[in-house]
Design a protein around this nucleic acid. Structure first.
Length: 118
DNA sequence: AATTTGACCCCGC
DNA sequence: CGCGGGGCCAAAT
């Protein structure tokens, strides 16, 4: 059986980016969540690495990835930070003080959450 | 080849 | 909310 853990770094990055692409418009995910879904639990940092390597690729919704507390990973005074906040706002995601309410916008993949009639 | 760095996270205090 | 400490691992020094 193929384990992503045994794959080359390049393959891991591809797996990570593949998950990021699946984050739906209007939703956000956290670095650790992406790592977890990609089959790489505990590798949140690698998600940042992967995104940085393919930075601003039009195919990848990098701006939908936030830190564990819902904060944007860049300062409010940085160009990239403002750009990310703008992208999110354009998707009707409310960004206050560089932070998003995960309770409201976090992506819930059905494969992991099952069909709860919450 | 050893050390540091980085779009991170979790725990305890 | 803030700090320190440990974990994580590929890439850059």
């Amino acid at each position: 059986m193929y384990l992503i853990e045994d794959a080359t770094p390049a393959e891991k990055y591809k797996a990570i980016l593949g998950v990021v692409k699946r984050v739906p418009k209007g939703c956000v995910a956290t670095y650790s969540q992406i790592a977890d879904i990609a089959g790489l639990p505990g590798r949140a940092r690698m998600v940042g690495k992967a995104l940085g390597a393919t930075f601003a690729s039009s195919e990848i919704p990098w701006f939908r990835v936030l830190r564990a507390d819902g904060r944007i990973a860049f300062g409010a005074d940085t160009h990239i930070g403002k750009e990310q906040a703008m992208h999110l706002s354009n998707e009707t995601i409310e960004v206050k003080n560089m932070r998003v309410n995960l309770k409201l916008y976090q992506w819930r993949p059905e494969s992991l959450w099952g069909d709860s009639t919450d």
